[in-house]
Simulated assay, not measured.
Amino acid sequence: MKKILISACMLGDKVRYDGGHHLIDHPVLKRWREEGRLVPICPEIAGGMEIPRPAAETQCKFPILITTQTGEDVTPQFLTGAEKTLEIAQRERVSCALMKAKSPSCGNQRIFDGNFSGKLVEGSGVAAAELMRNGIPVFNEKQLNELFAFVEDSERIPA
């Protein structure tokens, strides 16, 4: 049975920057949780950030720079969180990840543009990018059907 890395906020853990969560109430995810297949992680907490914490956005990709709205550089915490996320994913031998869209850590397709204006740009958060660079597919909450199909397909193929 394959394991799936999941953003802890999607399991109802209050780990988001504002102390909230993004619980996804879906029967497949409930079943996977009961089966012990979900591996929760919050890369920002793993990187040493607190709850609550100021919102942060990616200012620059090369070199990477992530700051709060007041200009505090939180890049080191985000990079540490990404490294720890990858370590856990590899140790647990996850087949894929379900991570929070738009997050500077977890977003897999689009992230906020760095101006704290709510505008999105193409790109990935640092943890999601680290996973994908290492061959671990990342899905977001708008891609549940694709995630379910991927897991189902991967379980039909012998390891």
Rank of each mutant, 00 (worst) to 15 (best):
A128Y: 00
K61C: 05
G36D: 13
R53P: 03
G123N: 04
R31S: 14
V28P: 02
I6C: 03
K3M: 08
V39E: 10
M99E: 04
T80F: 00
E152V: 10
L86C: 08
E87M: 10
F112R: 03
K30R: 12
L79H: 07
G114F: 09
F139N: 00
I111C: 01
K142N: 15
L147W: 01
R110K: 15
D153Y: 11
N115P: 02
K14N: 13
K119V: 09
E130T: 13
G48N: 06
M49V: 05
S103H: 05
I4H: 01
T85R: 09
E83M: 04
C106M: 09
L98D: 04
S7P: 10
H21S: 13
R93P: 01
P27S: 14
I64D: 03
W32K: 12
R91W: 11
A46F: 12
G12N: 05
C60I: 07
R16I: 04
L29A: 07
I64S: 12
T68Q: 00
V94G: 04
F78T: 01
E92C: 12
P43F: 13
G71Y: 06
K84N: 08
V138I: 10
Q109S: 11
E34L: 11
Q77Y: 14
N140C: 13
D13P: 00
A101K: 15
R156C: 07
P104G: 08
L86E: 06
G47W: 06
I136M: 07
S117A: 10
G47T: 07
R110W: 02
F112G: 00
A89D: 09
R16F: 05
K14C: 11
P158E: 15
P158L: 15
A56M: 14
N134P: 01
T58L: 05
E130M: 13
E50W: 06
R53F: 04
P63D: 11
M1V: 08
P137W: 03
V94I: 14
E155C: 07
A56Y: 01
L23P: 04
A149I: 11
T67D: 08
Q143A: 10
L86M: 08
D13A: 13
I24S: 02
P104F: 02
G107F: 05
R133F: 03
V74Y: 00
R133K: 15
F139Y: 05
Q143C: 09
E50D: 11
K2L: 10
P27W: 12
Y17G: 02
L120C: 03
K61F: 13
P63V: 06
N108M: 06
D13W: 13
P40S: 09
M49W: 03
M132Y: 01
D18N: 13
A128G: 04
N134F: 05
L65S: 03
K102L: 06
N115L: 14
V121S: 04
D25S: 15
P52K: 08
I41K: 04
K142Q: 15
Q77I: 04
C60F: 08
G71S: 09
E146V: 02
E122R: 08
S105I: 01
P104H: 05
L5G: 00
E50G: 07
Q90I: 09
G19P: 08
Q77C: 12
G135E: 06
R91P: 00
P137R: 05
E141R: 03
A97E: 05
